[in-house]
């Protein structure tokens, strides 16, 4: 218990829509050990961002609700906590990096003001002291000439520099947990490599834990200790990064790993694909949703498979078809 900074238990998050309530995150559980990085991977719409935003309660209002479960952060359940408490946790003890740095930053405020905003909210310091801290943060994230940069606007910076500013804001109050929601998706590969290295270094220096949300298995392999694979609002597999890549067990995980073009592939060979597409959130079956995608029939669609530990710390949604069949998606 105490070696985990965050435990998410049976989290269920839903949205009110015109045609009734939909459940975007359905009974998701995972935990983040102290000082480690946990990756959440999945395709668009699988609920990975909603899971993360549920933790800091940044769900779109008034449609988004946490319907059940517990989010235990440092021994305290954040579900049902007062909004004052959430305000002090979010941006203070839990930092968030958003995907697109241009939309995460306010275009009409100087960089310095945007960093000091959270410092002033969470710490008892004067504006002047906060600005000194902001300059220090900018230096830490590798921005050259930070004394000048604090007085600039976001549009004066390149994409990589903007993302560094977003990281500086997230880390300004020295959070114990960092949630990085697709931090490098909008960036070029060479800049992505810089940012991933920076995050790794900062994590080591500041001793924080990280939740890394991404759809890129390459980023997962480079940064994460543990991986949570999500499909259609549920966790289908959860394991250490090493186990997941060497012994993927759920058919979806295997399909995902197989369908990435790799540099050592034979050129112009046919790529493995996962047939079909994710069902609409309105049509989710109660049972195994990957069976639904594969157009299978039978009782696996009706009964939700149990979540089982098949090896130490290697959990999988044990649908009898998706876990047993090695064809046609075998590794």
């Amino acid at each position: 218990m105490s070696d985990h900074i965050l435990e998410v238990r049976n989290l269920k998050t839903g949205f009110d829509t015109d045609s009734g309530q939909v459940v975007a995150v359905d009974d998701v559980s995972f935990s983040v050990p102290k000082g480690k990085t946990v990756g959440i991977v999945g395709e668009s719409g699988c609920g990975k961002s909603v899971t993360a935003m549920s933790i800091v309660q940044l769900l779109p209002q008034p449609m988004g609700h946490i319907l059940g479960g517990e989010i235990i952060f440092k021994g305290e359940n954040l579900v049902g906590a007062s909004s004052e408490r959430i305000h002090s946790v979010r941006g203070g003890e839990i930092g968030v990096i958003f995907q697109e740095p241009m939309t995460a930053l306010n275009p009409v405020h100087r960089i310095g003001r945007q960093i000091t905003e959270s410092i002033l909210h969470h710490k008892k310091v004067s504006k002047r002291e906060a600005l000194v801290l902001a300059v220090e943060m900018l230096k830490k994230v590798g921005i050259p000439a930070p004394e000048q940069r604090v007085n600039e606007y976001p549009h004066q910076l390149s994409g990589g520099m903007r993302q560094r500013v977003v990281i500086a804001i997230a880390l300004a109050c020295g959070p114990a947990l960092l949630i990085a929601d697709e931090p490098t998706t909008a960036l070029d590969v060479t800049v992505q490599a810089q940012i991933l290295d920076l995050l790794k270094d900062l994590q080591r220096d500041m001793g924080m834990s990280t939740i890394m949300i991404t759809h890129d298995l390459g980023v997962i392999a480079e940064t994460c200790d543990e991986v949570v694979v999500m499909y259609a609002g549920r966790v289908v597999e959860r394991a250490s990064a090493r186990d997941l890549f060497t012994n993927p067990t759920h058919a979806y995980t295997r399909g995902l790993l197989n369908s990435i073009p790799r540099l050592d592939n034979v050129r112009k060979s046919r790529l493995n694909t996962i047939p079909g597409q994710v069902a609409s959130i309105m049509d989710f079956v109660p049972g195994c949703r990957f069976c639904q995608r594969m157009n299978r029939e039978g009782e696996t669609l009706q009964i939700r498979p149990s979540f089982e530990e098949i090896a130490p710390d290697h959990w999988v949604e044990a649908c009898p078809v998706c876990v047993k069949t090695r064809d046609p998606l075998s590794v």
């Binding site: 590969v189 060479t190 992505q192 490599a193 991933l196 890129d216 298995l217 390459g218 980023v219 997962i220 392999a221 480079e222 994460c224 990064a241 090493r242 890549f245 060497t246 790993l257 990435i260 790799r262 540099l263």
Partner: peptide, 13 residues
């Protein structure tokens, strides 16, 4: 540089 920056889907590398 471009080639070396690609993240490889292999945690052992």
């Amino acid at each position: 540089a471009l080639l070396s920056a690609i993240p490889h889907p292999d945690p052992l590398r």
